[in-house]
Design a protein around this nucleic acid. Structure first.
Lengths: 196, 196, 196, 196
DNA sequence: CATGAATGAGCGTTCATTCAT
DNA sequence: AATGAATGAACGCTCATTCAT
């Protein structure tokens, strides 16, 4: 019987989940390991049994987050043929982890270097899809002739702006759930060339 | 004689200035009152004499920042007749306080609610100018027909994205000094209607 | 079949040996039971199965050490007829366990009372041989007329001084290997009566 | 009025004294800053206000100790013309700080490098006086022809042996108070040349 | 008004010990 | 008999805040 290993993984998962929850609520920097242990219903020391240090715990949470988001984007991207598809794929993947992703973005400068790599990883994959679809549109003259990097940054900036100001845009719930469609629609309009 | 009162205000100003400097370097959350007192050359307790708590001090600094930025925008806006003027006015005002403004944006969720009001205040004034100039352009059909609020958020998001990733875009210096013109130019192109 | 009991003793011996090794390297106070378990290749809990507590483990290690040293002295002492022989026997026995013996001496005040008994036991046996040979020398007027206990303490003190300052005398290796002969020679000279 | 500064120094002295007391009782390694704060009757944080870290506190205590001992030796040494004088000077200086000095010797390998410098400093000064007086004796052939360093180490070893085993020699009090005279007398006998 | 010494709750982390498996 | 996950008290240290001077 593997009950021991099962319980171990269970506890680890509980802590990870509690941490994710706390980080989503309070941000990474403001959350104490003490609080996470309490939320997880384990002794304070147990946190350090499974994750050697606070930093490792944060990185583990971020890693889970990053892996999940990139996987989702990857899955969805198979059917993404238009720019609209790519944008929707991006937002749908993030929406699921909205609160913690928002904190990740904001706390990033205070987080370890490895954490930044995760964010960069997420953005790389979405940038890649952006690149493909925009190059095609450019060739077909169906899009304004602007540097793709600028367009990408505009998009990311827009999304991050809504996310970091969720208190403003959606005080009690998910910003993306509310604004996703509107954001995509308007962003597409912004890029399109008038066929007059 | 009001020398006493003068001295008092002088000390207050010194602390405020020191805090601004420290916050610009280290961010709001990472800075200790101890360090600020040291930077100001006053006793630690003096900080709490002028500002009841750390929170109040932070709010005071943010308030000064907000006032200065809005004033500058207000001043410049008199001569701002085109969208380009408005954008430039905005960036120039922010550029002066780039470091601390960037930290303000990033630390905001960890700051008291009142801090958000200041940021909203800054954005209100620039939004107002946006509104005026964009409505005119819309009427003249020189601009895409998109909600002004969306355009505004796109612009702010873009700027904030560059500011919060200054480490990426401008590791050793001012992001805006480098990208200001490029950002304005590209953003204008994004909005313009093709006259074909 | 006593295989079960055999296995048990085997495990116990493994832990004991690992503990000895770790204590020799890091000292008694600085070593964790965790580390010892790892070194022994057993689970952490197993340590406490065989030795009820850290203290008991330390005592067991010290006991093994004491037994081995006293046995060696006892063996060698059969052929020790001169003071030089006794001194050499003493140092040779200690030299084999130099590292851990040095730590034992230094950590003693922080160790349980029983630990002191072991050290006293070691010294009793060597004191006994001292006594025998020195009494003879005294009778023969070949040695200064000093209390034997004083001479004994001087010798032990000298040796312990070299051992506790091994970092000074022999930064990379065994102090006794280097100084054994010199120490014996000089100590003998110190005791001898000038035959002028 | 300098009441503030006075009180500050008072508190500092209280902590230093409490630390000295605790270190003398429990040794340096076994003592917690918590306990010292309690003993001093101040808040735990206050300890770190006056001494930045545990290490600094330990070093401060050791420094006071070292300074006092070396000063005393220096003072006494003016009238020390014979070897007996030098030995007595040495022991009298140490006797005053017997317990903490004993712990210093034993905990040394676990203490910061600077702590070792203090011990070396104390021994240097006593070594210097040893050197002077022994060279003279040697010249006059009133002493055995042994390396001065060996004699010195024998003396220090002897003293340290008594100190580190105070529990054995003097369970309830000062070892040196009891054995000082005896140790000096016997050590002198050990060195003297028989004038037969 | 200004000081800065003192506070004490809080932090991340370690480790001997226990106990269900 | 052996495991190793879990515990919880203790550690050194930081820092916003208070208050006697």
């Amino acid at each position: 019987m593997k009950k021991r290993e099962q319980q171990r993984q269970q506890t680890r998962a509980t802590i990870l989940s509690a941490a994710e929850h706390i980080y989503a609520s309070n941000g990474f920097v403001q959350s104490s390991t003490q609080l996470i242990a309490k939320e997880a219903g384990v002794a304070h020391g147990t946190v350090f049994l499974h994750f050697q240090s606070q930093e490792k715990l944060i990185l583990a949470v971020i890693n889970v987050l990053g892996t999940d988001i990139t996987t989702r984007i990857h899955e969805s991207a198979k059917q993404s043929h238009s720019l609209a598809d790519v944008l929707r794929t991006h937002l749908t993947a993030i929406e699921i982890h909205e609160s913690i992703y928002s904190h990740l973005i904001m706390d990033m400068p205070q987080l370890p270097k490895e954490a930044q790599q995760t964010v960069i990883g997420i953005q790389s994959i979405i940038a890649h899809h952006f690149d493909q679809v925009l190059n095609q549109l450019k060739k077909e003259k169906q899009m304004k002739d602007l540097p793709i990097s600028f367009i990408f940054n505009t998009w990311i900036g827009l999304i991050h702006y809504y996310l970091t100001n969720c208190g403003l845009f959606a005080p009690h719930g998910s910003v993306l759930a509310i604004y996703k469609d509107e954001l995509i629609l308007n962003f597409l309009k912004l890029l399109e060339v008038d066929k007059s």
